[in-house]
Design a protein around this nucleic acid. Structure first.
Lengths: 196, 196
DNA sequence: AGAATCATACCGACCGGTCGGTATTTTAGG
DNA sequence: CCTAAAATACCGACCGGTCGGTATGATTCT
């Protein structure tokens, strides 16, 4: 039966995710992860070559999930302004499901800014999303729903707004209604982009 | 003469800042900091009670500088839209002067999200700025330059945009013109807030 | 049996912090 | 103004402890 093996693997990943988010990558020791996962160190190093490898797998799972949700959200959008609002919905959804694990995002970002290996894994999807938003804005301008703008600037502004809200949500999770704020923010930005 | 002492202190702070930004707080060892500062470990612990204390002092210096620049920027603004654009200018200025040390911001944020002591130091100015932006938006609505909006949402959007641009600047410093992008982004958001 | 999976004991490197002692600067008495 | 004592600034070897990772033996499945 390889079921147990899979469960062990999954337990390790889950425990590592929680600890990385709560205490940070460095502070979370392998021993702690093993204890939280109910697994021995031997099992840990049987399934993963290093602590860093666990981090990378969590990162890639996260990116894959993001990609998947993004594509899904996309497919139910005709109008460009509505597509952006759908994105805001997606964001709210991410906020809700990532309870307590959002600081992990900071960990990803910090490591990406230092470790070239992590950077390469992160930068590709980042550019991908960026280009996607750019195309979206261009489509909006073509279909006449958006005012003429530098589409790159517009795309970066959208991304920045999303990232900034995420950051604020990490630091001050009780200071705003994070279930409605993303949508309202995007709406303001949209009014700046939209044709009147 | 206490000049030597002050220089040692300053060297330690400078070296610590660079190393924290480049490799992160945990990865930067006290020994490394001392070597980079050209100072012995004894000197380090003569001037600071702990590594953490050095971090806190850097953080507070940073917050003080931010506050000071913000107040200065403020005083030369009459119109609310212009005040926001001045803020964008300030941001560009911060980007330029913080060459290479911007990842330190991530370090601040990450630690604040975990260590209650750091959090308390960070959250006060954060709320302060937030309230300031809120007041600014309300003033704009009163003076008739801004459309009616939930001022809290508007303030959080402005902050989010700034934070998000900062994050992007850290990860992809070569992918955009960071000397003009803040202003352009704020302008778009402003169009969403402004009265037509 | 034998391969995959897991447990335990252990290793060497490194880290933050301490400490006894030394150099340098400031202070005070003559 | 000179000097000796007191205070401050600095040095670097060292310590207890933790960490990521390994080696090796026990278990469990096929």
């Amino acid at each position: 039966m390889q079921k147990r093996s899979q469960e062990t693997r999954s337990n390790i990943l889950q425990a590592a995710l929680a600890l990385f988010a709560n205490t940070g990558y460095d502070a979370a020791s392998v021993a702690e992860i093993c204890q939280a996962a109910g697994v021995s160190k031997g099992a840990f190093y049987h399934h993963f070559p290093s602590k860093h490898a666990v981090f990378m797998e969590i990162l890639q799972n996260w990116l894959a999930l993001l990609e998947q949700q993004m594509v899904a959200t996309l497919q139910e959008a005709q109008d460009v302004p509505h597509a952006l609002l759908h994105m805001a919905d997606l964001m709210q959804h991410i906020f809700e499901q990532a309870s307590g694990k959002m600081p992990m995002f900071l960990e990803f970002w910090a490591q990406a800014s230092r470790d070239p290996e992590v950077w390469q894994v992160v930068i590709a999807p980042y550019q991908h999303y960026q280009q996607f938003f750019e195309a979206l804005v261009q489509r909006g301008m073509a279909e006449g729903t958006l005012e003429a703008h530098n589409s790159q600037v517009a795309a970066q502004s959208v991304t920045a707004l999303a990232l900034g809200l995420l950051l604020q949500g990490i630091l001050a999770p009780t200071q705003a209604d994070w279930s409605t704020l993303p949508k309202q923010s995007i709406q303001i930005l949209l009014q700046g982009l939209a044709k009147k």
